[in-house]
Design a protein around this nucleic acid. Sequence first.
DNA 1: TGTACATCAGTGAACGCGCGTTCACTGATGTAC
DNA 2: TGTACATCAGTGAACGCGCGTTCACTGATGTAC
Lengths: 185, 185
Amino acid sequence: MRVTREKAAENRANVVATAARLFREKGFDGVGLDAIMAEAGLTHGGFYRHFGSKEGLAAEAVAHAGAVGEQRLADAATRAEFVARYLSPQHRDDVGGGCMLAALGGEIARQGAGPRQGLTAHVRTQIERLAGWLTGRSTPARRQQAIATLAGIVGALVLSRAVDDAELSEEILAAGRAVYGGRAA
Amino acid sequence: MRVTREKAAENRANVVATAARLFREKGFDGVGLDAIMAEAGLTHGGFYRHFGSKEGLAAEAVAHAGAVGEQRLADAATRAEFVARYLSPQHRDDVGGGCMLAALGGEIARQGAGPRQGLTAHVRTQIERLAGWLTGRSTPARRQQAIATLAGIVGALVLSRAVDDAELSEEILAAGRAVYGGRAA
DNA sequence: TGTACATCAGTGAACGCGCGTTCACTGATGTAC
DNA sequence: TGTACATCAGTGAACGCGCGTTCACTGATGTAC
């Protein structure tokens, strides 16, 4: 049963968004194409009419999640506000809808060219936008601080999620907010 | 063909060390028990005489890799030396022998109790040892700095590995060394 | 110390299951006239 | 505008392969006497 071009495009976008969520929640190897397609309301057989392979979908999902993350940074008014949201318990508990770098950074290093390209472009963008908020003397100094800040908040989110003790998890988030959300980098 | 108790214990330790390396290199789902056992010089059938399940081995592998990482921190003379080694191109390129938090942190968040316990204990130890090197006014301030420093170097290593551009990767390492290896946290 | 037997680390084949991918088919959409 | 046909998004079954796990077996080690 053929559907309209619009419906097909909507379905495709739905699959990408669903994949972006499920990959972040369960990892690239932790979720199958059948689960992604079913969650998007389709059957798995139609997958290859839209995507060349699972890795192709992974590349689009990474790009999609990256764009959402960039919008979040752009929407924040101040660095402190962004860091407070990024290192909030809500973000920690929303792996599927949260930062792609924290959820998949380690795995993307082992993926093919597509996903890595998407991640790299996202990292560049976030560094540049963060640098605009920083107060270092020179442009290189601000960029250096931006890189260290991005690394710090990503690392803190990863650790806060990996640890099995709620108190330690909160402590990691709080320390990150204090150090990376304040004036010093 | 039964082997001596000593040889059996040596074989078991070999499997754990091999698994610790392969899991870091390829992820928990990226390597099979047959590959681990083969690399350790055994056949896969004997696996369950030593371990209850793949997850059981994962827990031991995480504990093993964590202990090696703790030794590395203890062996360093200064914070700057440790950070310089941690954020070196050599460490970045040695995923299988390097920091377990950077290689598997994201995935361990999705694992069962065993691996998460091992990671949590390792995080606590590293925070405490890092705090001993820091110069904050109060003990809580030093601990806060230690947490932010650990998060920062782990995040920087993850990003430097994930990015597909060699120049950006070096820049991330250098920024991390400058910010986290210096006097300011 | 020597002998007979029990133990058990390791072997290799087999089982099930899940998953990525392929394919023939369906039937509504899109298009040519 | 209406009709006939081509297109193609989506369906559902099937294929292969890899992997975690199980199991009967082997034969050297460990132990009881």
